[in-house]
Amino acid sequence: MKICDRIVKEAFNYWDGMLTGQEQEEISTHIRTCPHCEKRFAQARQIRQALRNLPKLKTSPHFHLLLHARMRREVNRKRALLPLPITGWAWQVPAYAAAAIILIAGGIFIDQVINQRAPDSRSIYTNSTAAETVVIPVQQTEQAAPSRIKNYVMQPIPMERLLSMNRRHAAGQQQQLERRPADTSRAGLQRPQENLSGVRQVSAPVQF
């Protein structure tokens, strides 16, 4: 029976001619004389034939259509991640944004230059006698990121309050005031004010 097991295992190799001449000969002799192996060989041959002849199926008729739709979606998704093509009027959007940034940055730079030249004449909170600038801490988020620029907007301060504050400062009451002798150029400049039309403006230094 041992030889039978080995022979059955070799059935396909036998048909495929993958055995040596001697092995081929041994098998063909055996199956002629062993009914068990003859039967197994016949079964194996039937199965092989059946596997080869399994009906060939075709994909559904809308296969291509569906695939193309999925490919389009794929392309569109990738396109959405890319920058907008610079065609038609679309170029104007980044161009205007860039121009606005340059103007604002330029304004700040020029103002800083002016204020470095005349530090004591720039601020609404300048103590003329001490020639030092005092900044009112409008918000706690002074060092916040530029994206949170709204936090920098100054609150309108009534004139009487300004005067009284100035008097208090002069009298040495600095509890609510922050001393900034070195950084004299910042106050009132990097804090854009919003006007009524909603357009943010860089506040011009107001002088006493």
Binding site: N53, P55, K56, L57, K58, T59, S60, P61, H62
Partner: peptide, 8 residues
């Protein structure tokens, strides 16, 4: 029925 069997 959408999956067509090839006519062998």
């Amino acid at each position: 029925k959408e999956y067509e069997i090839e006519d062998v």
